[in-house]
Amino acid sequence: MKKKEAYNEAVNGDEGFAAGEGYPSCEGEPCANVADDGAAAADTMAEDTQDAAGSGAEAEKSDAAAEAAAWKDKFLRLQAEFDNYRKRTLREKMDLVETGGKEVLKAMLPVRDDVERALAAMDKSDDIEALREGVRLIAQKFTETLRQRGVTQMEAAGEPFDPDRQEAVAKFAAGEEKRGLVIDVVQTGYMLGDKVLRFAKVVVGE
């Protein structure tokens, strides 16, 4: 019995916990220190979270700036390439016009030579038939030279009037059977490929 009482006194005495309580009352300094440590730990975690969020935002901002710089570089390069292409195309077009005109004129020179020879022959010869044949050959050669360059003569006489290719300069009462047809060609029209090079001037029946 004495041993049991000594044990209870040791457990429930002033040096132990209060009777009926399993933990200290937290009125002293130790409990307050534990609370302060918990609050400090929470503040530290919040600061770490804020730092992580800030680092993420900075990384996204840096990535966006890098992407914008890359797109700007691509745009500047594309603009420079287009400007070079435009200048090159314009230069090639000008060269083509000049070269094309040069080739046509060069092709006309032999015809010009034939005309000069025909004029010289007219001063020396009285053979009208021979001169006439020479002029006919020059005309044929000129027509062939134009044909080689894509220029062809319109066939308009007797055909229905076509305002897309012909220009009516007069109308002539030619009877019901020739109404709307080309009666006469005042000036021959020419085509360059499938485009009108010169409209034909015609007289239309009515």
Rank of each mutant, 00 (worst) to 15 (best):
E5G: 13
A10Y: 12
A19G: 03
G22W: 08
P24C: 03
C26T: 08
E27M: 08
E29N: 10
P30H: 14
P30K: 07
C31P: 06
D36Q: 13
A40P: 02
A46E: 12
E47C: 01
E47M: 08
D51I: 06
A53S: 13
E58H: 11
E67A: 12
E67Y: 02
D73I: 04
F75I: 15
L76P: 10
R77T: 15
A80P: 00
N84Q: 13
R88C: 11
T89V: 10
L90E: 11
T99N: 12
T99W: 03
K102G: 15
E103F: 15
V104G: 15
V104D: 13
P110V: 08
D114Q: 15
R117W: 06
L119C: 14
A120I: 07
M122R: 12
K124W: 01
I128L: 09
V135I: 10
Q140L: 10
Q140W: 05
F142S: 10
T143A: 15
E144T: 07
E144H: 13
T145Q: 06
R147H: 08
Q148C: 12
R149Y: 11
R149G: 11
V151K: 03
V151L: 08
Q153N: 00
M154F: 02
M154D: 07
P160W: 02
D164H: 01
F172S: 12
E176Y: 01
K178P: 00
L181P: 01
Q187I: 06
L192F: 05
K195G: 00
V196N: 02
G205Q: 07
